[in-house]
Design a protein around this nucleic acid. Structure first.
Lengths: 324, 324
DNA sequence: CTGAAAGCGCTTACAG
DNA sequence: CTGAAAGCGCTTACAG
């Protein structure tokens, strides 16, 4: 595409095939209310092809008044294979209905530069970010379109509670919560922790000890050393996610602690690499189908101005491997 | 945003602040060629704020003739933290110039459903996918905009060659290439393999044996058993990427083979988890800054119809940890 | 300094 | 079955 080259419009196609722009539009959009003779139809299609005509999206959107774009807003750090797979399936489901899913991945805390909303008008936003952060919240508001959340607080609490229940059921009566050190993950981490707390409370156990585990092997090792100076095995560690769990297992191994005999470790998300750890990671998995159906329902509800569904409970399953 | 609610336009803002639409546009876009009295300017800004006015992007794009959107097209499987970080920095760099980066992550081999190009007109596409696949290629062509590649063949070959050279230098004179089993990764894998071959050829060594390593622990174990029945240690394994390398190390450990004494393993990408493996993974890292600068240069060249830069060589460094 | 007007490319009621 | 025309909301030469 050369710069300065003129755009090919439906008027060009109309002229070249000897019909009006209306007819071109009817044919190209397969308008069911018009019956175009197949001879004309084919000619138009052929000419459009020859000319390399592509309708100019903004004009169409301006005319119809709405784009068919769903924008997923997420943070780099949360794009685990699980979420990515869910979004991929969402994309397929949306495509069947004529919608397209695109991702915005970034840190909206940057105040200079241009705003994405100046370049893009989605129909709906799917938010996977922490909306309690004012910067993020105002970033989302700018688009002035409905916002649907992927996961909510109660879902994350349930995950923490499930970890705790499992560990308790396995006979660990002292629990630790291993939290990542990223500041931007703290809110999500606190929600998981709250679930772990509830799990402990159910069984009248002491509240979990919270240990931050940095994402470098050396610092993770020190963190675990700290932890061991405060708590004596046996105990169980509920990890924020599988990444944290893998760091914890590595650090435990460095410290010569046996997993799961002395310390049990449970992750969350069931990332593909979880099976390759020694011992293989015990972790949580979600029913993606349920989550997806709820999400799609809410997207279309939001887009049509209907109220969103209350989040139905999503089933969480435990993938028991070697670490707990 | 209720359905059926009328959109607030610049005409509304103009009316409410007693000026023309032109003046509203000048103020909102900070047009340097106009000098609007600051009293008027502030009034317009305030009214726009009060009314909750957001310019409608498609109208602006239709008028100006070009969007400021760069679309990154990628596959789920290639979104390693490295690439994601690069794209994040790209986004920041583009934002400084008024452009926005969004991602399309999906499998364009689906023929039903709507085409993304009907919903979105980017200015430039950054391709991280295998364009030799006809389905992917025609997907990209549909947009009818310039396409910039992130990495090219010669870059991937260089990675393979660097792995081979390092292992050879460490004293391993028999090399194996561990390839993922995903069909869609085969072309990229072949390019890395070609680099390994070149590395072997340089030193007049036998060509590398190619072993496919599936991404499940059980099958990976069998693959390694097969490998060991064909080749006797010591030898070195150049892995397609860190994910494969981690699977290989797990399988080697299952088979009781010592790493790196009997078998050395080198990965590619230096993902964050690489340090948490036992032994910690030796792998390749790239100079992201160089890659980024080249990419940005090519994006703007493409967008302005200038020819793209030949890909300058990107420096690759070896992160020597315990596995090789 | 401000406003009236044109026009970007499309879709779609409407008239024939 | 087909075409002339309106209009989506914006920016920007142009005239005052």
């Amino acid at each position: 595409v050369e710069k300065g080259q003129k755009r090919i419009t439906s008027a060009d196609v109309a002229r070249a095939s000897g019909v009006s722009r209306a007819t071109v539009s009817y044919v190209l959009n397969n308008d069911p209310r018009q019956s175009i003779p197949s001879e004309t139809r084919e000619r138009i299609l052929r000419v459009a092809q020859e000319l390399g005509y592509h309708p100019f999206t903004p004009a169409r959107i301006l005319r119809t008044g709405h784009s068919q774009i769903v924008l997923a807003v997420l943070q780099l750090e949360l794009v685990d294979p699980k979420i990515a797979g869910l979004l991929k399936n969402l994309e397929v489901a949306l495509a069947e209905r004529g919608y397209s899913l695109i991702w915005y991945v970034g840190w909206p805390d940057r105040s200079d530069g241009i705003h994405l909303s100046a370049n893009l008008t989605p129909a709906v936003i799917v938010s996977l970010v922490d909306e309690s952060d004012p910067a993020i919240s105002s970033f989302l508001q700018q688009f002035n379109v409905p916002i649907v959340q992927l996961e909510n607080d109660s879902f994350r609490e349930m995950a923490g509670k499930t970890q705790a229940r499992y560990l308790i059921q396995q006979g660990y009566h002292h629990l630790v919560f291993a939290s990542p050190d990223r500041r931007d993950l703290q809110k999500l981490a606190m929600e998981r922790l709250e679930g772990v707390r509830q799990g402990c409370a159910e069984c009248s156990l002491d509240m979990p000890f919270v240990q931050i585990v940095p994402h470098s092997r050396k610092e993770a090792k020190e963190a675990i050393r700290d932890l061991l100076s405060q708590r004596t095995p046996p105990f169980g560690i509920c990890c924020y996610n599988d990444d944290v769990a893998i760091a914890v297992i590595a650090a435990l191994s460095d410290a010569g602690i046996r997993v799961p005999e002395a310390v049990a470790v449970i992750g969350c998300d069931n990332i593909p690499l979880a099976q390759f750890i020694n011992p293989p990671l015990t972790t949580l998995d979600f029913d993606e189908k349920q989550l997806l159906d709820l999400l799609i329902e809410n997207i279309f509800a939001a887009n049509q101005g209907r109220p969103m569904q209350e989040s139905t409970p999503i089933s969480i399953s435990i993938i028991a491997r070697g670490s707990a």
